[in-house]
Amino acid sequence: MLEPLRDVIARHGLDARKALGQHFLLDPGITARIAALAGDLTGRHVVEVGPGPGGLTRALLDSPAETVTAVEVDARAVAIIAELATLFPGRLHLVEADATRQDLTRLCPAPRQVVANLPYNVGTPLLVGWLRQASAWERLTLMFQMEVAERICAAPDSAQYGRLAVLAQWTCRCALVMRIPPGAFSPPPKVYSAVVSLIPHATQPDPALFRAMEQVTAAAFGQRRKMLRGSLRPIGGEALLAAAGIDGARRAETLDIAEFDLLARCHAERQGLPP
C-alpha cells in the first residue's frame, strides 16, 4: 500500500513553488482518468515531465505501460520519485533534469508517449519542441492552462487561433479531452486547466519545412491586426503571397492549416532552407 500523497508531501516539505509553475494534482480519480486518456499503454514507454509528488506517476504505474520515465528538476520532488522508483524497480526511471534542455526521445525506446501535467511556465515551449520531432511520438497527452489548451485546438477565424494552433494542428490531430477545475489542485490555480490529446499525423514535415513554418507563423501572427502583405514583409511578403496564390489583404487568422502549409512550402523553396 502506497503512502497517501498528502503524507508524502508533508514529510518532504514539498510546497508548490510559483517560480516552477507548480500546482499538484492529488485526486487519484482524476489522475487515473488522465492516464486512461492516453489510450492502451500496453508495451508503451511513457515520459512524464514534472511529476511533482507523483500523483499522475502512480496512475501511469497502475496502467499497463512498459516503463515510465519521470523527468523532474525540483530536488525535493526528485527525492519523492526516487522513493517511488524503489518500489517499481526497472519500471519507473527517474531523470533529474530540466526538460526544456533535454531531448526526451533519447530517454526511452519507441513506441513512446508523453503524458504530463505540465508546469504552467514551460508548457508551451515544451510542446513546440515536441512538435518539431512529432514523428518520434505516438501520442502526447498534456495538461495546460485552459487558455493554452483552447489556443492549441482553436479554429481559423477565432480569437484563440494563432501560431500555436497552426503548428499543433499541422503536425497532429488535436482534441481538448478533459477540463479540470482549480479546486482539483493544491494549491488551486486561478484558472481552469484542460487536457489536450495530440496524435501525430502519419506524414511529418522535414526539419527545414518546420523551420519555414515557424518563420511564417511568427511573422504572420506577430502583428495579427495587419494584413498579410504587411505582416509578412520581413520574409518577402508580396513575392511569397504571390507564389502561394494568397490575397495579401487577408489577415493571418483567416488562413486555414492548408494555406499556411502552402506558404511554408513556398517560403522554404524561395529561401533554400537546408534540411
Results as ranks from 00 to 15, higher is better:
162 G>A: 08
148 V>W: 01
185 F>N: 09
188 P>R: 10
196 V>C: 08
212 A>L: 01
131 L>Y: 04
157 D>Y: 05
200 P>S: 04
200 P>C: 08
139 R>I: 10
212 A>G: 02
187 P>D: 11
180 I>R: 11
179 R>A: 14
126 L>N: 08
158 S>H: 11
129 G>K: 12
161 Y>I: 07
214 E>D: 12
144 F>W: 01
147 E>F: 00
125 P>L: 08
141 T>F: 03
143 M>I: 03
161 Y>A: 06
186 S>F: 13
191 V>M: 13
156 P>H: 10
217 T>W: 07
215 Q>R: 15
171 T>A: 13
157 D>K: 15
217 T>P: 09
117 N>F: 06
118 L>I: 06
196 V>S: 07
118 L>F: 10
207 P>R: 07
137 W>L: 02
194 A>E: 05
196 V>N: 05
130 W>E: 03
202 A>I: 03
153 C>S: 11
141 T>M: 07
182 P>L: 11
179 R>M: 14
133 Q>T: 15
165 A>G: 08
182 P>S: 12
139 R>D: 11
135 S>Y: 03
168 A>G: 00
171 T>C: 13
189 P>L: 10
190 K>G: 14
120 Y>N: 06
165 A>Y: 00
129 G>I: 04
135 S>D: 15
119 P>Q: 12
179 R>I: 14
160 Q>M: 06
177 V>S: 13
199 I>R: 15
197 S>P: 03
204 Q>D: 04
209 L>N: 07
152 I>C: 09
181 P>A: 12
126 L>V: 09
211 R>L: 13
139 R>Q: 14
181 P>Q: 10
142 L>Y: 06
140 L>R: 06
189 P>H: 09
216 V>C: 09
137 W>M: 03
164 L>A: 04
206 D>S: 13
156 P>D: 09
171 T>E: 00
188 P>W: 07
125 P>C: 11
139 R>N: 09
132 R>E: 15
128 V>W: 04
153 C>N: 09
129 G>W: 04
154 A>R: 07
